[in-house]
Amino acid sequence: MAAIAPQTLEEKPVAVESQSKSITLRISKFNPKTESNRNFVDFTIPYKKWTTVLDAILVVKENFDHSVGVRYSCRQSSCGSCGMKINGKPALACYTKISELNSNTITVEPMDNFPIIRDLVVSFERMFSAHKKLKPYIISEDSEITKDTKEFLQTPEDVEKYLQFSNCIKCGLCNSACPTMATDSSFIGPQALAQAYRYVADNRDKGKNDRLKIIDDSHGIWRCHFAGSCSKVCPKGVDPAMAIQLLRGYLLGFRK
């Protein structure tokens, strides 16, 4: 080991340097308050095997154009802030490695079906209000903290009924990929519908009928045509398409 170590130290920087390649990063720049058209600005960025699209955008901000508008926070696909369209498909910039895109040009745009605030940043106002409308909390008369009551016991099987749907980080990728969201401005959207199922499937919750009443609307659950694109782009395995079809089972009387 001791004999190998100095050689590795000397050779490693050379080896890493030779693996470094570059790509053209095309960033959509648009300020709806002052501009009428979207422009694309190209930057040549070096990257390595693990460089993410977010890393590349931050290189642009640090070295070329500080004004690029981008929202990010955790950089580990937990906060859902950096959703954007990468080479035509919605994805999290921090979760998308440049080396996996197999393209010399990477185009980043704001997500479709969300109003643009600036450059790559979109407004989540409508998605959050749809989410809130579906009462995303346990509705129950009983409380774990009331005197003389016990904790709500759930079996592992009970938990598995809703666990994957509680993984939602509200990144909006599903709403951006949904073909119904593309044309129906009043559609509740796969994000909120999946969250409705998350609480309906939870055996501690007593708000099933309230939620079913909200989604049983002309712009509600019936607008989903099971294209499955929401599940395809979800970075957390939530599978909104499954949640929506299972939720529909309650309204059709297949599930109780």
Partner: peptide, 14 residues
Amino acid sequence: GQGGIGVGKPGRPD
């Protein structure tokens, strides 16, 4: 599928 048939079962995502 829209009746919930053949869409799989919810589980722990990996």
